[in-house]
Simulated scan of single mutants.
Amino acid sequence: MVEVKLHDIGEGMTEGEIIQYFINVGDRVKDDQPLVEVQTDKMTAELPSPAAGVVKEIIVRPGENVSVGTTLLTIESDQLLQFDPPMKTNQKRPQTIDTTILNKGKIILAAPYTRKIARDLGVNIEEVEGTGPAGRILDEDVLRHVNKKKPQITSAEPTEAVQSGEDVTIPFKGRRKQIAAKMTKSLYTIPHVTHFEEADVTNLLQLTKNLKQEGNYISVAAFFIKAVQLTLKEFPVFNAVLDEENEVIRLKKNYNIGVAVDSEQGLVVPVIHNVENKTIKEINTKMKFLIKKSQENNLTRNDITDGTFTISNVGPLGSIAATPIINYPETALIAFHKAKKRPTVVNDEIVIRSMMNLSMSFDHRVADGARAVAFTNRFVQLIENPSRMLVELM
């Protein structure tokens, strides 16, 4: 009997939620055939069959959260079978993306976590009106639908209070719970120190504006990522992982920059690998591609692994400061906040410049404050004077 267990399908994964099975007990499966869809804190993935045979038992039911190493189902492999049951001719593999096609031809767009909220609240997701892009159903759409369905209690007596009904609850499990576990581990394992700095991004904003007019749509964030990589090259201690067991700090040879993305399923950090070998334009293209995959919940294991440093560009949301939690087991994370025009002294004169705050959290076991200050000073030099960055790339 072959046991199919939940294995680590993502860096640092400890548990996952079973979303759906593509097979039933008694079905014949082929080697490497997708068996079950699992959601972790970062992605949704399929687990393939380790052998050909017949499904004998499904142990863990959809909706349950289980730890890595848990047996999900068992398969009697062909080596043990005395006969060859015929495959069901009418069996079709369910959809593995977050789109359900109904018999009426209607397409329902909803993330797995949103569907889970609907199931837990007893809501038929087909009845929910989506307000997201292309009619996608959001978490709040499900909650709004629940509130609409609640009976409105009124009273014939003016003096009686109108009952407000029960509180609506959101399940704290699946990706949300896994994100919480990872953040807790990072905060209680790493002694965080956050260094704050400001940068004049006037020249950089003008450069991106000029490029846009020429037909080159390159995000400011792409310049940030390249500037981070160039700065890490000078300060490799921040592109490192602390290996306490072997009592060494491992300086990573590649610069794999993670980009924090706020998706409907929660915070995810897709990684742009080998930034040192990419142009700013290539970084921009890859970044947009990964953000799109994040928002569509289509990230693969390769998209989220082997990060060496993380950035969080929260400026577009309006942030002015933060104390970011490091993406364990990395050594540092830098957050970029809202760029705002304000009076600034330049050459003893008060001028209006676009100023941006940044926050850098780092592991105080690995680096000291002086190195963090030197790091941010160098980074600021590069983005305040984009021409210096171009010189570095020659």
Rank of each mutant, 00 (worst) to 15 (best):
A370P: 00
V351K: 14
V345W: 10
I350A: 05
G369R: 05
P324M: 03
T344W: 14
A332W: 01
A322T: 15
T310E: 02
A322N: 13
S312D: 09
I326A: 00
T331F: 00
M356H: 13
F362M: 02
F362Y: 14
A321E: 07
P324D: 06
L333C: 04
I352A: 14
V345D: 07
L317C: 07
D303T: 01
L317P: 05
G318V: 09
E349Q: 15
F375G: 05
R365K: 10
F362H: 05
A339F: 06
A321N: 05
D303C: 01
D368L: 03
R353G: 09
F362R: 05
S359E: 05
N313G: 11
T323Y: 13
N302E: 14
G307S: 03
D303S: 08
R301M: 13
A374W: 15
P324W: 02
M360L: 15
I304E: 07
I325S: 03
G369K: 01
A332F: 00
P329I: 00
T344N: 06
V346F: 09
A374Q: 09
K340Y: 11
V373Y: 09
R353L: 07
R342K: 09
A370T: 09
T323N: 10
T310Q: 02
I311T: 05
D363F: 03
I350V: 15
I304P: 10
L358M: 12
M356W: 06
I320L: 12
N357L: 11
S312Q: 11
G369W: 02
M360Q: 06
P343F: 06
G307A: 08
R371C: 04
T310W: 03
T344K: 12
A335P: 08
L333R: 01
N327I: 10
F362D: 03
T305F: 07
N347V: 10
G369H: 02
F375E: 03
I325F: 07
S319M: 08
V373I: 15
R353D: 04
N302V: 14
A370I: 12
I325W: 04
A322W: 03
I350R: 09
T308F: 02
K341F: 14
L299A: 09
A321P: 05
R301G: 03
S312V: 02
R371P: 01
M360K: 01
T305Q: 13
N313Q: 11
I325Q: 01
N302G: 06
S312A: 12
P343T: 07
R301E: 14
N347R: 13
N357I: 15
K341Q: 15
D363R: 00
M355I: 15
N298D: 07
F375R: 08
K338P: 03
A321I: 13
L333K: 05
S312L: 13
T308A: 05
V345G: 11
F336G: 08
F362I: 02
A321R: 10
L317Y: 15
S354R: 04
A367P: 03
A321M: 09
D306S: 12
R371V: 11
N298S: 14
I334D: 00
D363M: 00
I334N: 01
I326P: 00
R342M: 14
F309C: 08
K338E: 14
A372E: 11
V373C: 00
